[in-house]
Amino acid sequence: MAVTASNVRRNRTWPAVRLGLLFISPWLAGFFIFTLYPIIASLYFSFCQYRVLTPPHWIGFQNYIDMFTDRDYFMTSLYNTFFMFIELPIALILAVAIALLLNQKVSGISVFRTIYYLPSVVPTVASAVLWLWVLNPQYGLINRTLMMLHLPTTEWLSDPNWAKPAFIIMDLWSIGGGVVIYLAALQSVPQHLLEAAELDGASSWQRTLHVTLPAISPVIFFNLILGVINTFQYFTQTFVMTSASPGGRGGPANSTLFYALYLFQNAFENFRMGYACAMAWFLFIITLVATLLIFKTSARWVYYEGEER
């Protein structure tokens, strides 16, 4: 009897499923043709010598071996990318701090919120062009200010030691996007917990540390994961801002040659699509590992409401 019943149910649902599939078929076709197929193809190409104009031919692990024997470029780009991870904790602490300040009940607070959020509205390319001038060694806002204060100046993007820190400073300018998310989280911190802590005699610092921060930890976790992924893919800023470098994009002296930029150059300038695919897969793997590691540790510091601890 039971078998017949389930058959009936299947008969009834299958046409509906078919119709549903039919209706999302444009999306499915797009996904299979333009997303899944290229991903699988790129894995295949990563084992090939592929120059785009002629069909790829299999060379085994050669591309992967080449990657790790290329010190000046591949290793440099990897190092430069890892260097940018310095930005993550700074951005995180700053964004949370600003969000805490913007969460105060002060008159005109919405004006401040707007001011801090505004840079995030500026497209990356536009802000890169703007910062070219802010960082300009002679006329730039930063160096002019330092000079007025009789402080030492640096050549920023013209100095291989300062080019990456310059990028970090520039990125910190637009942390408003993160701030808004933290702010939203702060406003949903359970009021009763804060009040209870206050009644127990907790200082405002203790309340922040033991109530507010744990309460927003899922949001910090979310931003951290996004930050890691974005840092691995760091590209637009250097693509736009170092195109005028005497040593070409990624200059000076390859100090801003980030992983994604080098990948791009191999794919579209050096006709080494196979190598670029191998780089892309390696990037995918390290991003995956980093993300998994953060997920693993998250059990220790991320609190979800209603969760038993």
Partner: peptide
């Protein structure tokens, strides 16, 4: 030096 020359050239 290149730091200075390139820094100037950026203007």
């Amino acid at each position: 030096g290149e730091d200075q020359v390139d820094g100037f050239a950026r203007g």
